[in-house]
Computed example of a mutant assay.
Amino acid sequence: MKSQSATIRIVNIPDFETRAEKILEHLKAHLIALRRKNLAKLASKVPATALIGDEVEDENFLHDDDDALGLPGEIEFDPFDDAANLSHLDRVTLRERAEKLAKARIAASGIAHLRKDELERLRPALSPMKLIMCRDEAHADEIAAGLHAEAPWLAAATEYAWHALRQSARCGEPVRFRPVILNGPPGVGKSLWARNLAKALELPLADVDASKGGAGFGLVGLERGWGSAQPGRPLDLLLAQRVANPLIVVDEICKAKSATSEGGSHHAFADALLSLLEPATAKSWECPFFRITFDMSHLSWILTSNTARTIPDPIRSRCQLLEIADPTPQHLHDVANRQARRLGLTQAARDAALAALEQAPVLTRRRISLRDVSRILDRAVALEGRPILQ
């Protein structure tokens, strides 16, 4: 069953048509309708024969020659069809007015600085966007149960999401999670858990890697004038999916980077993220690319890290920190067995994979993560599909 939804506008731009071709179509239709209306008024005062022509003496002239012409009977004559035949002067005048009106509307809307292709890219934001809702508290319980069954060692994260969903359902509000940091060893499934949460709620999701995000331009976008100018990932997701409360996952916030330009300007990933995390600034957030203010306050943020010590203090102070432990050997065994069945491995292949997983800590002399489980299963799939030499 699908999640419920509401709608909201994320940009405060007048919702009127700014494309000259569309305005021209409306003007043509209006002129034709107006002329037909005027002709109808005239027809009520003047005999129909006066509109059709002086040579008409018999009202049956429209049907007398039907058989001779090979036409079906009961053809109705519409003396107002000429109203739709616009003259060349009509068309030129209407096009000039449409282009003038389009320019005036663009100037009044505050988007005159945008190119035509940029305006088309922005167009989805001009209409109300969906807000995904949690149907009811039972739905929240089902989602939490499913997440816990897949990753019981992430119980702290699941409980956090569970309470947030129940509150949203109870209050009839859109789904939104307060910013949270999942801190724990690499390879324990923090990002996978977030993706499963988004999938269960049918929330659009975007991944941003803070360790590769440079100064945060991939997060908030880069202003026009640069060769790589574009909107940030979150806004791009909103425009593509037309959902105002997607889930944004920021991986490895503990490795967030910064950069200093040749002119001495300092740009940090943490600063870019803060502009979207802070409710006051997210509500009226200005996109560097479009140079228009958007309401980004409905986004949900899940950040992951491997060590809390290197998380920038301004980010940490605005997020709830949840400590995530390693999965136990039994957890890894259960995950491997479940995934092997989903992959359709034979019993022999499953047994071999589980045996390899059990021996892995001794052979590798290190901790085993979910990534190791995935590699073992990938190897089992490859070996099972290999032809046997006779």
Rank of each mutant, 00 (worst) to 15 (best):
93 T>Q: 09
77 F>V: 15
87 S>H: 01
106 I>H: 08
71 L>M: 15
93 T>Y: 06
115 R>I: 00
129 M>N: 10
84 A>I: 00
91 R>M: 09
106 I>M: 12
121 R>V: 03
117 D>H: 12
97 R>I: 11
108 A>G: 01
113 H>N: 04
111 I>F: 02
82 D>M: 05
83 A>K: 04
117 D>L: 08
93 T>R: 10
126 L>Q: 04
129 M>H: 13
117 D>A: 13
85 N>K: 11
125 A>E: 08
78 D>M: 08
124 P>W: 07
116 K>A: 13
68 A>F: 15
86 L>R: 05
124 P>L: 06
110 G>A: 05
73 G>P: 14
116 K>G: 03
106 I>E: 14
116 K>W: 11
122 L>R: 06
124 P>Q: 12
84 A>H: 05
83 A>H: 04
117 D>F: 09
130 K>Q: 12
127 S>C: 02
112 A>L: 03
92 V>L: 09
118 E>G: 11
80 F>N: 11
125 A>D: 08
120 E>K: 13
87 S>N: 01
81 D>N: 04
102 A>F: 10
103 K>N: 09
90 D>V: 05
95 R>A: 02
85 N>C: 01
127 S>Y: 06
107 A>E: 14
72 P>L: 15
81 D>C: 05
73 G>E: 14
77 F>I: 15
95 R>Q: 11
123 R>D: 14
107 A>F: 03
115 R>E: 07
